[in-house]
Simulated assay, not measured.
Amino acid sequence: MPEIELTAGTVTYEDTGGDGPVVVLLHGLVHDATVWRAIVPALAPDHRVLTPTLPYGSHRTPMKPDVPLSPDTVVELIAEFLDRLDLTGVTLVESDCGRAQTVAVRHPERLARLVLISCEAFDNYPPGAPGKMIELACRIPGGVALMARILGLKPLRRLPVGIGALTRRPVPDEIVEGWLRPLRTDPAIRHDFRRYNLSVRKDELLQAAEGLRTFDRPALVVWAVDDLMMPREHGRGLAELLPQGHLVEIEDSRTLISEDQPERLAAELRAFIAKTA
């Protein structure tokens, strides 16, 4: 897997290559690029698809300890990733986390389109029971290690305070184990995770939402009807804020639509990019 040295640290990524429209897929907390494993093959034949693994707890290489790690750091890391690889006309796609909203506001120059998929927005932080559990774990000494061990227990994975809140269908055990292994085995990754979560500004996404009014480029908002973490009205609100926003709601799915309804999601992405090319 290729990697790139950025200001905040080393980021690994996958790149299908090719000459088609560039699509960059961003994941959420305690996931890595494998959350897109069913989407990439559907787009790859005629798109160049890149999937970086962000420092959200499932990354394998710790970030530089002397560089502050916060949502603002990740926004700049994403922008630097696009710059260093000289990616233009990018369709920036994000699920679960909300950093792409701020990227679109602060660094729109390389973006052609924006796709927001059931993500944090407005004042929804921490989102749902899992978000509150993460916040509490990060504030208690040893809490992150304990949380990772609990989530790693197979009988508990479907509980509504864990991965069960994110999907209607079980995520394969080998994928979940890959997501959790860095937090379970590497103290430096746990330190990164705490640094990130303890640096969240509660007003960040409210500010980003206001800024989205100026993102006058094609934008697609895809929301899960059965989402337990991201309020349904937030999808409608984001679509209304974006000057060229369009809302698609997907049934029989929770937050991770790429897990619950990958074929439908891939079809919506393909159609959106083709329509706005």
Results as ranks from 00 to 15, higher is better:
residue 85 L to I: 03
residue 209 A to G: 13
residue 273 I to L: 07
residue 179 W to Q: 12
residue 138 C to I: 00
residue 168 R to Q: 14
residue 59 H to A: 10
residue 157 R to N: 11
residue 85 L to T: 04
residue 15 D to Y: 04
residue 178 G to D: 14
residue 161 V to H: 09
residue 147 M to I: 06
residue 46 D to L: 02
residue 129 A to N: 12
residue 217 R to I: 10
residue 239 A to F: 13
residue 167 T to S: 13
residue 227 D to M: 01
residue 167 T to M: 05
residue 109 E to N: 07
residue 66 D to T: 14
residue 81 F to A: 09
residue 47 H to V: 01
residue 121 A to H: 04
residue 223 W to G: 02
residue 208 A to F: 12
residue 151 L to Y: 15
residue 175 I to N: 07
residue 193 F to S: 00
residue 207 Q to L: 12
residue 11 V to K: 01
residue 134 I to L: 00
residue 65 P to Y: 09
residue 276 T to S: 14
residue 199 S to D: 14
residue 194 R to L: 00
residue 7 T to G: 02
residue 260 D to S: 03
residue 134 I to H: 03
residue 241 L to H: 10
residue 194 R to A: 13
residue 42 A to F: 04
residue 38 A to S: 15
residue 205 L to Q: 15
residue 27 H to Y: 10
residue 267 A to Y: 01
residue 14 E to H: 07
residue 273 I to S: 06
residue 81 F to V: 01
residue 241 L to W: 08
residue 122 F to R: 02
residue 14 E to W: 05
residue 51 T to I: 05
residue 63 M to Y: 03
residue 23 V to Y: 06
residue 12 T to Y: 14
residue 168 R to M: 15
residue 64 K to M: 11
residue 171 V to W: 08
residue 39 I to E: 15
residue 66 D to E: 15
residue 261 Q to G: 00
residue 145 A to C: 01
residue 9 G to E: 00
residue 160 P to G: 01
residue 211 G to R: 03
residue 160 P to K: 00
residue 141 P to F: 08
residue 120 E to A: 15
residue 162 G to C: 03
residue 51 T to K: 02
residue 245 G to D: 04
residue 253 S to C: 07
residue 216 D to F: 10
residue 211 G to S: 10
residue 234 H to G: 09
residue 276 T to Q: 13
residue 185 T to S: 14
residue 268 E to D: 12
residue 16 T to W: 09
residue 74 V to I: 15
residue 40 V to F: 02
residue 174 E to K: 09
residue 224 A to G: 06
residue 247 L to Q: 08
residue 34 T to C: 09
residue 194 R to H: 00
residue 72 D to R: 12
residue 38 A to Q: 14
residue 24 V to Q: 11
residue 29 L to T: 15
residue 250 I to L: 07
residue 250 I to M: 08
residue 192 D to S: 01
residue 232 R to N: 11
residue 270 R to K: 12
residue 228 L to S: 05
residue 104 A to V: 04
residue 67 V to K: 04
residue 153 L to D: 09
residue 214 T to F: 06
residue 202 K to F: 13
residue 103 V to N: 05
residue 212 L to K: 04
residue 269 L to A: 08
residue 111 L to P: 06
residue 152 G to N: 10
residue 46 D to C: 08
residue 156 L to V: 03
residue 227 D to Q: 00
residue 19 D to I: 02
residue 229 M to Q: 13
residue 183 L to V: 09
residue 224 A to V: 08
residue 81 F to R: 04
residue 54 L to P: 06
residue 16 T to Q: 12
residue 228 L to M: 05
residue 233 E to K: 07
residue 65 P to K: 05
residue 51 T to H: 01
residue 277 A to L: 14
residue 93 V to C: 07
residue 232 R to A: 13
residue 40 V to T: 13
residue 27 H to S: 10
residue 274 A to W: 03
residue 149 R to E: 14
residue 70 S to Q: 13
residue 141 P to T: 10
residue 193 F to Y: 06
residue 66 D to P: 06
residue 29 L to C: 15
residue 17 G to F: 10
residue 129 A to I: 14
residue 67 V to N: 05
residue 139 R to H: 06
residue 151 L to R: 05
residue 30 V to Q: 11
residue 155 P to E: 02
residue 95 S to W: 08
residue 268 E to A: 09
residue 104 A to N: 08
